[in-house]
Design a protein around this nucleic acid. Sequence first.
DNA 1: TTAATATGATACCAGATGGTTTCCTATCAA
DNA 2: TTGATAGGAAACCATCTGGTATCATATTAA
Lengths: 120, 120
Amino acid sequence: MSLQAHAEERLDALLHALADATRRRLLRRLAGGPAAVGELARPIAMTRVAVSKHLRVLEAAGLITRTVTGRVHRCALSDGAPRELEAWLREYRDFWDAQLQSLARYAERGTAPRRRERAR
Amino acid sequence: MSLQAHAEERLDALLHALADATRRRLLRRLAGGPAAVGELARPIAMTRVAVSKHLRVLEAAGLITRTVTGRVHRCALSDGAPRELEAWLREYRDFWDAQLQSLARYAERGTAPRRRERAR
DNA sequence: TTAATATGATACCAGATGGTTTCCTATCAA
DNA sequence: TTGATAGGAAACCATCTGGTATCATATTAA
């Protein structure tokens, strides 16, 4: 019926991590491929240290992963991340019906091309 | 291609409002129908004032609406709320493909018709 | 009119957050 | 070895956050 306390906390972390424009920008950048911390920090009007902090938030939320090779920390999106978000959205389906439906319409058109899914 | 600054801010507010277990609990409660502030506060181990603050956060994020009749403030879910969230999810489709697909599968089964309840 | 009720407003607090600067360490390259 | 580079660690600061207690106000009921 409801998510356990642990999942609630993970959901807190996930949503909080997403509720920041800089962090979303970092995710958007990483959507184009993995990058080192310095690479990620360079185009942002902010100290490398601050960016590093944001990255740690994203990492703690399970949104990105980090592999250290030598002195370079390479960050990448962790693809399994939004599970909790999805689970939570599912729980709220009753009052988000409309939104989920339009999301579904989009998803059918936009992301499931190989299945040749024909709806409606 | 990208959301304007204003929409970014609204998205910040929306996600931040959702990133709190108490506020999600309030939304869950409101999903069962509108309620007055006191009604919402009663079952929560927290001062009425604190609950009122949470409600104001939800209101500012556009997630709920409030109608004052007499001395009673009745809160209700605002159904158009998750538009920005949806738009944002759409923008991230490239790396959330898998999640959106399973969400779509869910939505096809679960919300399109008023059919059977298949919780799982 | 008086008292109880629903709620907001204000002031206050401790702790978290989001930045900064400075320094340290490890690694790579000359 | 020496120096530059990638990055973390720690200290610090201003502001935000999520609570609290208290008071004010409007409305309803007796």
